[in-house]
């Protein structure tokens, strides 16, 4: 069974961490993954850097630009990850924009993910209808879960359609914003969290955007299955390099 699905069956709240591959230094990828697993994180999203990250705020824009400047490419990332399953068993997701995947070749990309032991993909600008018409069979053939996003603006009907198309979890964007833009949650989020919980979706939801510490992690996971930390972890890497990852995770939960 897919590692993400197995993890989601555990009776616990999921802590997922995002980082940009190739940042802060080109060859930090494996060390960051190993330290995150050791620190008790449940799921890791490895960011494939892109020159034009539309949905990202300044923090992840900067880490992406730096990673590309360091020399990160899709081919190099696969090279860095080729033996990753010898040292970690944590579910791994690749997250990035669709264009680099398209250039690598969707089939070849998925093939490579399967060889390495990647469990899922998050490609925010690959729309639901295109995925279903052109790529779903390829993803499935290679055992990859595709994760879709919903936002407070997503209609109930569309959430149902996304729920039907999902297997694994739904990435619940906490507010109408780019990554790392808003801190903390207000009444809008409370209403939104309630609304989604009330929909009794078949897939669990993991909340992302705006989670940076124990308090926001706690708030986000009151109803949802888990939460994702991205920009806050990138800031930690900017300040500390790859040191103290255990300490960072330890203060979240």
């Amino acid at each position: 069974m897919n590692r993400i699905k197995l993890k989601l069956q555990e009776n616990k709240k999921i802590l997922s961490i995002y980082f940009t591959a190739g940042y802060p230094s080109l060859n930090d990828t494996v060390k960051i993954i190993q330290d995150l697993e050791e620190s008790g994180v449940d799921l890791i999203e490895i960011g494939l850097p892109f020159s034009d990250p539309l949905a990202d705020g300044p923090t992840i824009q900067a880490s992406s630009t730096a990673a590309l400047k360091n020399g990160m490419t899709t081919t190099l990332l696969f090279e860095q990850l080729k033996d990753i399953r010898k040292s970690v068993s944590i579910p791994l997701i690749l997250m990035g924009y669709f264009n680099p995947v398209l250039q690598y070749g969707v089939e070849e990309f998925c093939q490579k993910c399967e060889e390495i032991g990647i469990d899922g993909l998050i490609l925010p600008d690959l729309p639901l209808d295109v995925y279903q018409e052109e790529y779903e069979t390829i993803f499935k053939k290679h055992g990859l879960i595709n994760v879709f996003l919903i936002t407070p603006q997503t209609s109930d009907a569309r959430i149902r359609a996304i729920d039907d198309a999902s297997e694994g979890f739904i990435y619940m964007v906490s507010s109408a914003s780019t990554t790392g833009t808003k801190e903390g949650f207000g009444t809008e989020q409370a209403t939104y969290f309630e609304r989604i919980a009330g929909m009794k979706l078949k897939n669990p939801q993991i909340v992302g955007f705006g989670i940076s510490n124990a308090q926001t992690f706690q708030q986000a996971t009151e109803q949802a299955k888990g939460a994702i930390i991205g920009s806050a972890f990138i800031k930690h890497l900017t300040q500390n390099g790859v040191n103290g990852i255990g300490g960072f995770v330890g203060q979240i939960r």
């Binding site: 669709f98 729309p127 936002t151 997503t154 964007v173 914003s177 780019t178």
Partner: peptide, 11 residues
């Protein structure tokens, strides 16, 4: 063509 947009832009 088409609309290759993140869900945040969909509405």
């Amino acid at each position: 063509g088409g609309a290759f947009i993140p869900e945040m832009l969909y509405p």
